[in-house]
């Protein structure tokens, strides 16, 4: 299915309200960026509204659904609860940074193949959480997967296909490791 053809522009924030800007240096999806941010805005808004990176989703704004999960210093956090003003020096990875070159990350590919995404709105958050889980635990049990994903709500799937996808991703990543070690 095609996207709606609408140019994404950055609406920006008007200066007349006396906003205090702060210069921060961050690593975003592996690239160093120097940004001028409004300190009290949240990381989620910084990504979506100011940088036009709408892959990270907003589901509740209160840390209760996990749709906005990103990796901050390698750890999954709710970007709706992180202030831009605390980010100087931060290393942030979002869904847009998950692909390895043109290839899908195994986690993405597994979700694609196993029906891990239906409406797809919780998917970016699920993928970031899964990435973090598999980094810590290469071979999680079903129980461990359920535990790790319990902060990511999904209204479509009943989680069954998501859990299968995580298991398949783990398998794919282990195989990849073995092939790489051999090669």
């Amino acid at each position: 299915m095609q996207c709606v053809a609408v140019p994404a522009i950055f609406p920006g924030w008007p200066g007349e309200r006396g906003d205090i800007n702060k210069k921060i240096r961050i690593t975003l999806n592996g690239q160093e960026r120097i940004l001028e941010v409004v300190p009290y805005r949240l990381l989620l808004d910084l990504l979506r509204d100011e940088m036009g990176m709408t892959g990270t989703k907003e589901g509740c704004g209160t840390g209760d659904c996990g749709a906005c999960t990103v990796l901050l210093h390698g750890k999954p956090v709710n970007s709706c609860l992180v202030f831009s003003g605390e980010l100087d020096g931060a290393d942030i990875v979002t869904i847009e940074g998950l692909k390895i070159g043109p290839e899908l990350h195994p986690v993405q590919d597994a979700f694609r193949q196993d029906g891990g995404a239906q409406c797809g709105y919780c998917t970016p958050g699920m993928l970031m959480m899964t990435t973090a889980l598999l980094r810590e635990n290469e071979q999680p049990t079903e129980e461990e997967i359920r535990f790790a994903l319990s902060g990511n709500l999904c209204r479509c799937t009943g989680y069954a296909k998501i859990i299968q996808a995580v298991q398949r991703a783990a398998e794919m990543m282990r195989e990849k490791k073995i092939t790489e070690a051999k090669g």
Partner: peptide, 9 residues
């Protein structure tokens, strides 16, 4: 407490 995402913060 909350979720892993919450507990990381």
């Amino acid at each position: 407490v909350g979720s892993i995402q919450i507990r990381n913060r």
